[in-house]
């Protein structure tokens, strides 16, 4: 039925030549283009991410002088020292408390606001704008606003308790309250962004699901737990990991509000890294702490990637 073409030697030779040439054309071009397109980013990341990573890892296995020069190789001794230091374990502990509280509060509050603001009511746009407003507030501004709220003599909370004849709370001098103050400020700062993302996600849940539930007479709380929550769970997961990672990296608010105090109650990881290196000049210790922070962040980022991998194909 079909003509079976005779593959002569000449033909097969010709085709192999042309095949090679074609491959050459494609790759030769792309090679130089890719150097141009990828080169700058690769170079920058190499210099400011990969080199520092290895340098930090390297320093963490030495003792250092006050100029940051490595002196004696100690292997993992720095790590052992850290883990057996009550001071460091305290830092790790307060960081964990902080991360946990910030994440739980940010997500629940964000969810509450987003669910409320997703209702189709007249004027709801105003509330959406108001709730997302903290997104425009930078670290220093947030710190200043809240420092005034917490101020023991002239602060807003102090005034309110005075007016109500209550004993004023020592926000920034009591260890437990200082932690609470930092948590409140962080959550407040996170809220705008979290709210916006969750709202977007809730709005993308198909209306028909709610209509179907409505027809079957499901209450609005039931609708929230049985429809909204499961439908937005990928976003919820995404926002949670971002919040966790950001909380582990907190520095600005702590420096501005408590400076790690009182009595180390808010002396969290990054603040420690900074203090140990740039105040005490203990670069080896600081690098060791930095590697521990890296491991923690990498762990949570990896979880996020694993999850995203299921959702998106990259």
């Amino acid at each position: 039925m079909l003509k079976t073409p005779a593959t002569s030697e000449v033909a097969s030779e010709k085709k192999s030549v042309s095949k090679k040439k074609f491959v050459f054309r494609l790759n030769a071009n792309d090679k130089y283009f890719s150097m141009f397109f990828l080169g700058p980013s690769l170079l920058l990341l190499g210099l400011f991410v990969f080199y520092p990573l290895f340098k930090t890892l390297y320093i963490s296995m030495f003792l250092t002088d006050t100029f940051g020069n490595t002196t004696v190789f100690t292997g993992l001794q720095n790590y052992v020292n850290l883990i057996s230091s009550a001071d460091f374990m305290n830092s790790l502990f307060v960081t964990l408390i902080y991360v946990l509280a910030v994440t739980v509060l940010t997500i629940t509050m964000g969810l509450l606001l987003a669910n409320l603001a997703s209702k189709k009511l007249p004027g709801i746009g105003i509330f959406r704008t108001l709730y997302s407003m903290t997104m425009g507030v930078s670290v220093a501004v947030a710190a200043i606003f809240w420092l005034f709220m917490f101020n023991p003599s002239t602060g807003f909370f102090a005034l309110v308790s005075n007016a109500l004849k209550l004993t004023p709370i020592n926000w920034l001098t009591d260890p437990k309250n200082a932690m609470l103050a930092v948590i409140i400020t962080t959550v407040w700062m996170n809220l705008g962004f979290t709210f916006l993302i969750l709202l977007g996600s809730i709005e993308s849940v198909p209306r028909s699901l709610y209509e179907a539930a409505e027809v079957e007479g499901a209450s609005s709380s039931r609708q929230f737990f049985k429809i909204t929550l499961p439908m937005i769970s990928p976003t919820l997961f995404f926002v949670s990991t971002i919040t966790i990672i950001d909380a582990f990296k907190s520095f600005g608010l702590i420096d501005l509000i408590t400076k790690g105090g009182p009595t180390n109650a808010t002396n969290m990881l990054v603040y420690r890294i900074y203090k140990d290196a740039f105040y005490s000049g203990n670069y080896a210790k600081s690098s060791t702490e930095a590697i521990i922070l890296t491991v923690i962040i990498a762990f949570f980022t990896l979880i996020q990637f694993k999850f995203l991998e299921k959702k998106v194909n990259y």
């Binding site: 790759n27 890719s34 990296k249 890294i273 890296t294």
Partner: peptide
């Protein structure tokens, strides 16, 4: 673009996302 080690380079970028700048200040 198609180039050698593209997957490897991309993996490097992904790894970069896992590394906090705060840990590399020194």
């Amino acid at each position: 673009l198609k180039f050698k080690y593209r997957k490897l380079f991309f993996a490097l970028f992904l790894v970069t996302m896992m590394l906090p700048f705060e840990a590399q200040i020194i």
